[in-house]
Design a binder for these strands. Structure first.
Length: 444
RNA sequence: GCAGCAGUAGCUCAGUUGGUUAGAGCACUAGUUUGUGGAACUAGGGGUCGGUGGUUCGAAUCCACCCUGCUGUACCA
């Protein structure tokens, strides 16, 4: 093989993708097991849909574009555009529409899966990430919306967060609709600019967001964003409405009433919760963390929400002639895990194997005998899988965090007792082969 | 997309009036110890200084363009 630098493959990862190591995966597993427990308790069904969908099925049909690349990863397969799903809600809507007659109504399902977004990654944001979704499809009952917030909160607390660590914010599209009616603003473009500005209050503060309602704003880096060009009197009205902090739409009032019945208190009505502009039709929720999150360099970063959702009463009916209200919530699991690992010192220890050291390859039969005894007792164990002297084997055992090694060389064979070396204390003791498993269990 | 900052060994980084063969710590390999890790000592391997082009007798260093990363901002169904 000719070694040519130009033909060597890159060891770099594509932008926005990440390798994830055991430490993180174990915390993720812990979170997932909590989620499943809660979902079963709340009566949800488990569903999985494929990673790819037809591009138009997930609302990404762009007839005027050669390639549907606006935020999704796509490719053309036999004249049909396929895209990697960008969330779990659109595939759910497709699934419900496809199986509409057979499904119970309401249909409650939860789903865990990777989603992909073809956009610029940010701190704690990747182009591939794991999402959790819980949805109620086919009901207008606001108890569904309320219960989603209660259930999210139960999941977070099971994962070790206190009530002071997070807040569920709630608002409703109906609230802002009413506001625009009052302000007599009808331009769709202006409305979306205003909504986006309101969405940023949380991050930028009112005085900066205000500039986006007016002429525009220059950010820290010197970049300029045009505003919605509202006159001061209208901005003032908006400011007052935001200050009032009392829910004035019936849906939010109803939901908060149900919260009381659940004795759920960790929520806040916040009209600046906006989220996606396209499909929410009623109540909107957002889950925010109240503690500081840092990146790998120790700098505090703008972390944003770890999840949210709301009511989308028109999404499923896009697929056919049926009226199918729905509401759902999702969590970005990787982001939650990232934050949790900073907040809590997880003592989830990974199980590392006991190492049986190799003195003589011809003794493999004896080593395997010991190995089988340990594995039969459900002890993680292995015969040193590499090649080299005892020193190298000890270094290996140390590096992988093995709790102990077993030495079984000439001396031990003569005496009929293996040496069990505890790698934490360094203590060595002679143990009969048949007692090894029990002795090891004592030190695990 | 826009903006600011950055890219030198596997990792963290030093390295300017441009000047021999580009450095340190950690990590790695071997040995001191042919049956003992986490400590110490000795020796060693490892870099087209992000890429391409330019200026120059000479570029890690200066210039242009590109790529990548971080942070902010825009978009986020």
């Amino acid at each position: 093989m000719v070694k040519n630098k130009k033909t060597k493959p890159s060891k770099e990862l594509p932008l926005g993708f990440a390798d994830r190591q055991e430490k993180e995966l174990l915390v993720r597993d812990f979170v997932i097991s909590n989620i499943k427990e809660v979902m079963i308790k709340y009566g949800f069904q488990y569903l999985e849909t494929p990673s790819f969908e037809y591009t138009d099925s997930i609302g990404k049909f762009l007839p005027d574009k050669e390639r549907p690349d606006a935020g999704v990863f796509s490719f053309k397969d036999e004249n049909k555009w396929l895209s990697l799903r960008y969330d779990l809600t659109a595939p759910l809507a497709r699934y419900v529409a496809k199986n509409y007659l057979e499904l119970p109504k309401p249909f409650k399902r939860y789903q865990l899966g990777s989603v992909w977004r073809n956009e610029k990654p940010g701190p704690g944001r990747f182009r591939e990430f794991l999402q959790f979704d819980a949805d109620y499809v086919g009901t207008k009952n606001l108890q569904a919306d309320a219960e989603l917030c209660v259930l999210i909160s139960e999941i977070l607390e099971k994962c070790g967060l206190d009530k002071t660590d997070y807040t569920v914010k709630i608002s409703s599209r109906k609230f802002t609709d009413k506001l625009f009616e009052q302000l007599k603003i009808k331009s769709k473009d202006q409305i979306s600019k205003i909504l986006r500005a309101l969405d940023k209050i949380d991050r930028l503060g009112w005085s900066e967001a205000k500039k986006l309602l007016g002429e525009g704003r220059k950010d820290k880096s010197g970049d300029y964003t045009k505003g919605a060009n509202l006159k001061n009197d209208k901005i003032k009205i908006i400011e007052n409405v935001l200050k009032s902090k009392t829910p004035e739409t019936e849906d939010v009032l109803e939901i908060t009433k149900i919260f009381q019945a659940y004795n759920f208190k960790n929520y806040k009505f916040d009209p600046s919760v906006i989220r996606g502009l396209e499909y929410y039709t009623g109540a909107i929720f957002e889950v925010n963390l109240n503690f500081e999150v840092k990146n790998s360099k120790g700098q505090a970063i703008q972390f944003g929400s770890i999840g949210g959702g709301g009511r989308y009463d028109n999404l499923v009916s896009n697929f056919g002639n049926f009226d199918c209200p729905a509401t759902g919530i999702s969590i970005g699991l990787d982001r939650l895990v990232f934050a949790l690992m900073q907040k809590k010192d997880f003592k989830i220890k990974s199980t590392r194997p006991i190492i049986i050291c190799v003195f003589d390859k011809n003794r493999i039969k004896e080593y395997i005998e010991i190995l089988n005894k340990l594995r039969t007792s459900n002890i993680s164990s292995e015969i040193y899988p590499g090649e080299g002297k005892l020193k190298k084997q000890m270094e290996y055992a140390n590096k992988i965090g093995s709790p102990a090694v077993i030495l079984y060389g000439d001396n031990e064979i003569k005496s009929g007792r293996a040496t069990l070396k505890n790698l934490e204390t360094g203590n060595e003791s002679p143990i009969k082969i048949e007692d090894l498993a029990n002795e090891i269990k004592k030190l695990l």
